[in-house]
């Protein structure tokens, strides 16, 4: 089955899994030490240092400044909207994402391969184009007569669109790996199809669903491009956190921008750590 890389099943390389074949992890020699050094320099220049700069800048004015920026009414509204819609969208994705994965793995009908590509489209599509795409069906010129542009529903839809692949792609491989014998065993012990799903299949999927949900949430709160054309970015109404940050940047107010950005960054870090912990837990089940 297709699996696009970035919506992952687990963070790359669960470390310390000694069970892997040929796992001769050697310690660094001279050449590889140099390689590591170069890689770290590049990674630092590109990722680590810039992100650290955000945190540093955010705390530039001290704790009280930081706090006052975050409690600014418009900022609070933006954060509430962002987090609220992200949670809602994640909840929807848990259900529909699992359902989509189930249909892709367990069901067979003509045209199913097409759906595999369709699911990855939100991931590969430029976000600004995504906004245009959603506008065509849910904006002023909608053939269905809907006009949800510049409303909170637009935010909901945009989040829904960009987070589509995540849970599907984390659940799919787990579903594929499920042994049919396990379900047969449950049946032979007297479990109905539904009981088997509830007590046997779902628990096996839980870690994958959780990691997909974490990624979905992180992606949703980060979204920007699709909202530019779709939501109107109206303060107190349809303005999300990333838009707020952008307006600070455009106003050359980098401290405020960094402060709000630090919140988003913190959430991203929490998600990463949670996924790492989760993947170790799952490795226990073998």
């Amino acid at each position: 089955m297709t699996q696009t890389a970035p919506p992952p099943a687990a963070p790359a390389a669960a470390p310390g899994d000694r069970r892997r074949r040929g796992r001769a992890a050697t310690s660094l020699g001279a050449a590889s030490g140099l390689g590591l050094g170069i890689a770290l320099v590049w990674f630092s220049l590109l990722v680590l240092i810039p992100l650290t700069a955000v945190l540093v800048q955010a705390s530039a004015g001290g704790w009280s400044t930081y706090w006052s920026i975050l409690t600014n009414a418009q900022t609070v509204a933006a954060l509430e909207l962002t987090v609220g819609q992200a949670v809602l969208v994640t909840a929807v994705n848990v259900v529909i994402g699992t359902a989509i994965a189930w249909v892709l793995v367990r069901d067979h009908f003509p045209g199913k391969r097409v759906l595999e590509v369709v699911i990855d489209i939100p991931f590969a599509l430029p976000t600004i184009v995504a906004g245009l795409v959603l506008l065509s069906l849910y904006g002023p010129s909608s053939p269905l007569g809907l006009n949800w542009a510049n409303t909170q529903i637009a935010v909901f839809l945009a989040f829904l669109f960009v987070t589509l692949p995540f849970i599907v792609r984390t659940v799919e491989p787990v579903l594929i790996e499920l042994e049919p014998e396990v379900e047969e065993a449950a049946a032979s012990l007297g479990a109905s199809r539904f009981t088997t799903f509830r007590m046997i299949i779902l628990p096996s999927l839980a870690p994958a669903i959780t990691s997909g949900a974490a990624l979905s949430f992180a992606r949703a709160i980060s979204e920007y491009g699709s909202l530019v054309l779709l939501s109107g970015n109206l303060p107190y109404s349809t303005e999300v956190a990333s838009v707020r940050i952008l307006s600070f940047v455009e106003g050359d107010n980098l401290v405020d921008a960094a402060a709000v950005a630090s919140i988003l960054l913190l959430v991203a870090l929490v998600v990463i750590v949670a996924l790492d912990v989760l993947s170790r837990r799952v490795a226990r089940y073998g």
Partner: peptide, 30 residues
């Protein structure tokens, strides 16, 4: 290979996936 901090590096590599592009722009700007 193994080296101190490998697990951290492993997790951090995934970071760009969860970071808002606006935050990325801001970070690079800074």
């Amino acid at each position: 290979y193994t080296f101190p901090g490998r697990r951290a590096l492993n997790a951090l590599v995934d970071l760009p996936l969860s970071v808002s592009p606006i935050v990325v722009g801001l970070a690079l700007l800074l």
